[in-house]
Write a protein that binds this DNA or RNA. Structure first.
Lengths: 179, 179
DNA sequence: GCTAACATGTAATCCGTTACATGATTAT
DNA sequence: ATAATCATGTAACGGATTACATGTTAGC
């Protein structure tokens, strides 16, 4: 349905896809692992789970253990298919510029849920986008760097270096998939 | 007023602070410079400018040139003061994890609009936060890396390497401020 | 008996996205 | 003439934040 679901929804979907989880489980993950970049607030998680259930991507069941009102969610067939579609979406320059976090999330799930060779193709495509974008930024820096305030120039350099490191990462990662 | 204004609002405020600009000028900046990560859509920019005007941070005037209906904005005293407060906010770990982009935006403006030595202090504080956060991520990787799917582990490594590169950047930048 | 941790939810608000709408000016 | 570019806006919608609300279970 909604083509532009947030990275957050897909984070939920992917985690629930690995193992059935409650909202509270997800909160703990987002509060205490490197996935901290996602919100662990109840106001974000519970409504998101309700939306996913309404759309038929997950199904929740009361977990009666001890009479506690715990709701454990599992991904449905439709949910898996939707997740698969998301994983398969081609990488755009806009993804690189504005949604790198979502790209990395996607990659993190790719080995478990992607099709054969998807991770390799992902790395190749990302590498291509980075290799085409970085020179543009370098050109801009060369042209305008001189009359930017120092911190402005350094901020731009930070962005470029970050992309360059990401590119080096794609190279070493591709090597791991070849090896 | 609103303590949690978006990075986007501050990008507008900072740019208008350097030189009076219209909404369309801002759209062009966000469409064609390394500030592409901000939205250049009219539905984002014009309402944001209206909000800033309503709050008294900018003032718009009709630019009559050629009878064209162009609205040029200038930052008010209150706007500058608000911007200054934003610049002076201390760096938190949460900023590093979830709002690095906003931090870099802030730094970009710091030489022009910050107080004396603000850029140096910023770099020192950022360096401290990174140096304390990176080992946490490394520890997590050491503990859980082995039983993560390969792409999951690599995604985590990407995040760590990105923070490490950012830390190296703070070092070379601090050197530029000493030099 | 009390506190901390477990566990799920709602309501108000704000902001960004997408899509639509409108009109003036410049270049061909 | 007409297309491209300049220029500003609105409306519907959705998702995230913050703050509030509520109740259970386990350990001391």
């Amino acid at each position: 349905m909604d083509k532009n679901k947030s990275a957050f929804s897909f984070a939920l979907l992917g985690l629930i896809g690995k193992a059935e989880l409650s909202g509270y489980d997800l909160r703990k993950i987002f509060a205490s692992t490197p996935m901290r970049s996602f919100s662990d607030s109840p106001g974000a998680i519970y409504p998101a789970l309700q939306r996913l259930e309404r759309m038929g991507f997950v199904r929740g069941r009361r977990d009666g253990a001890g009479g506690r009102k715990r709701v454990v969610f599992a991904v449905t067939a439709r949910g898996r298919s939707e997740f698969g579609k998301w994983l398969a979406q081609p990488i755009t320059r806009d993804d690189v510029i504005r949604r790198m976090d979502a790209l990395m999330l996607k990659f993190a799930f790719l080995d478990q849920f992607g099709t054969k060779g998807a991770a390799r193709r992902f790395l190749k495509a990302l590498s291509r986008e980075l290799a085409s974008y970085i020179p543009e930024l370098r050109t801009y820096l060369a042209k305008h760097g001189a009359h930017l305030p120092k911190s402005g120039r350094l901020a731009l350099e930070s962005g470029i270096r970050s992309y360059e490191e990401q590119l080096r990462w794609t190279k070493s990662s591709r090597a791991e998939y070849r090896g």
